[in-house]
Amino acid sequence: KWTITVQGEEAIKWAIKVAEARNLDYTVHIDGDQAHITIE
């Protein structure tokens, strides 16, 4: 299990796209213009 933090709307969209493309189980916690994405 690991967490990445991305900043900015484009980076958030990209990170989610990558997680979905790899069929990963993930949760997103949005904090202002940052998102913390935890991959199970």
Rank of each mutant, 00 (worst) to 15 (best):
V28W: 05
Q34Y: 14
V28A: 03
A15S: 02
W14A: 14
T38F: 05
A11W: 12
V28L: 12
H36E: 09
A19Q: 02
V18W: 15
A21K: 06
A15D: 01
H29R: 13
L24K: 04
Q34F: 15
K17W: 12
W14C: 15
A35H: 04
I37M: 04
I39P: 00
D31E: 12
A15W: 15
R22C: 15
E40H: 15
G8H: 02
I37T: 00
E40M: 14
Q7M: 12
E9D: 10
T5P: 02
I39N: 01
A35M: 11
N23S: 08
I30F: 13
I30K: 06
D25Q: 14
T38L: 05
I30T: 04
I12S: 01
A35Y: 12
A11R: 07
T38Q: 06
A11N: 13
W14E: 13
E20Y: 04
Q7W: 15
A19M: 15
I30S: 04
I37V: 05
D31A: 07
T5N: 04
V18F: 15
V28P: 00
Q34L: 14
T38Y: 08
G8L: 05
H29Y: 13
E10L: 12
T3C: 14
Y26S: 01
W14H: 13
I12H: 01
T3N: 04
I4V: 08
E9A: 12
I30G: 03
R22F: 15
K17G: 11
I30E: 03
A15Y: 12
G32L: 06
V6A: 03
D33Q: 09
D31I: 13
T3F: 10
W2F: 10
I12K: 03
E20G: 05
W14T: 11
W14L: 13
H36R: 12
T3Q: 09
T38V: 12
T3M: 09
E40Y: 15
A21N: 06
V28D: 00
L24H: 04
T5S: 08
Y26E: 00
G32V: 05
I12D: 01
D25P: 14
Y26Q: 00
E20N: 11
K13F: 07
T3W: 10
T5L: 09
K17P: 00
V28Q: 02
W14R: 14
R22H: 15
E10A: 11
A35F: 11
W2V: 08
K17L: 11
I4S: 01
T3G: 04
T27L: 05
A19R: 01
H36F: 13
T3V: 14
A15L: 13
D33Y: 06
I4E: 02
A11E: 07
K13S: 06
T5E: 03
K13L: 09
Q34H: 12
A15T: 04
A11V: 06
D33A: 08
I37D: 02
E40V: 14
I37G: 00
V6D: 00
A35D: 01
D31P: 01
K17E: 11
W14G: 07
Q7E: 10
E40N: 14
I12G: 00
I37P: 00
D25F: 13
T3K: 07
I4M: 06
T27K: 09
G8D: 03
G8S: 05
E10K: 08
N23M: 09
Q7H: 12
G8W: 10
I39Y: 10
I39R: 01
V28Y: 04
D25A: 14
W14K: 13
A19F: 13
N23E: 06
T38N: 05
D33C: 10
K13W: 08
V18D: 05
V6Q: 01
Q34E: 08
E20A: 08
D31W: 09
V18G: 03
V6K: 00
T27W: 08
A19N: 01
R22T: 14
E40Q: 13
D31F: 13
I39S: 01
K13E: 08
D33E: 07
V28H: 01
K17V: 08
I16E: 04
A21D: 09
K1H: 11
D25H: 15
E20P: 01
G32T: 04
K1E: 04
I4L: 07
E10D: 11
N23A: 06
T27V: 09
I16S: 02
T5I: 14
A35L: 08
H29T: 14
E20M: 11
D25N: 13
R22N: 13
E10T: 08
T27E: 07
I16V: 07
A15Q: 03
A11M: 13
I30V: 09
D33K: 07
V6T: 01
H36T: 15
I37W: 00
I16W: 02
I37A: 02
E40L: 15
K1F: 07
A19H: 01
A15M: 11
I39D: 00
K13A: 09
K13I: 09
H29F: 13
I37E: 00
W14P: 03
H29E: 13
I16M: 05
E9V: 11
K13P: 00
N23P: 05
N23I: 05
I4G: 01
A21P: 00
A15C: 13
A21M: 12
A19K: 02
A15F: 15
E10W: 12
I16N: 01
W14S: 11
Y26D: 00
E10H: 06
I37F: 12
A11P: 02
G8K: 01
T27F: 06
V6N: 00
T5H: 09
E40I: 15
Y26N: 00
I37H: 00
R22G: 10
D31R: 07
D31G: 03
L24Y: 09
T5Q: 05
A21G: 06
D31N: 09
